[in-house]
């Protein structure tokens, strides 16, 4: 099991935070371009999924799987979008994403007077805490490769 990377978008589509751990492939496009495509894709899946649904979906789109990776998605009612890519053996990550929201983002970004909410997160404290949290997850272990 392993975790590849993590994106956090606000409701305006701004990528507030990005981090990667065991990501193997780097794209040739810029990070900005990648963020834009990621947000666009999530937006489209979300709206298409809700249009297909005959009833009001409470949670809607949660994750999708390709033959190589699994993308997990969690959105707050305020439109914050938490996205994480893992390998296929990882189960439901909704609780993990919720935890990143409630225990890390709210505590170290929302309550930090020096963080502006509509700007990318620069708080070292958030960065360190998130990294610690992710590395401590049972879903994280992968043999360290040098």
């Amino acid at each position: 099991m392993t975790i590849f990377n993590f994106y956090l978008f606000d409701r305006h589509g701004t990528c507030l935070y990005y981090a990667e751990w065991n990501r193997k492939k780097q794209l040739t496009m810029s990070k900005e371009e990648e963020f834009k495509l990621m947000y666009g894709m999530i937006f489209s899946i979300k709206s298409f999924a809700s249009r297909l649904s005959p009833t009001d979906m409470k949670e809607g789109f949660l994750n999708f799987t390709t033959s190589k990776y699994k993308l997990h998605f969690f959105e707050t009612p305020s439109g914050l979008k938490f996205i994480m890519n893992t390998d296929l053996s990882v189960g439901n990550m909704k609780d993990v994403l919720h935890q990143i929201f409630s225990s890390l983002y709210v505590e170290y970004v929302v309550k930090n007077p020096l963080c502006e909410l509509d700007q990318p997160v620069t708080s070292e404290l958030f960065k360190t805490k998130l990294d610690e949290y992710i590395r401590g997850l049972p879903q994280f272990p992968i043999k360290a490769t040098s």
Partner: peptide, 15 residues
């Protein structure tokens, strides 16, 4: 200071 991490450019600020 409970929720504050001071960014590097404001090194000495203590709220």
């Amino acid at each position: 200071n409970k929720f504050i991490s001071v960014p590097k450019d404001k090194g000495s600020l203590n709220c």
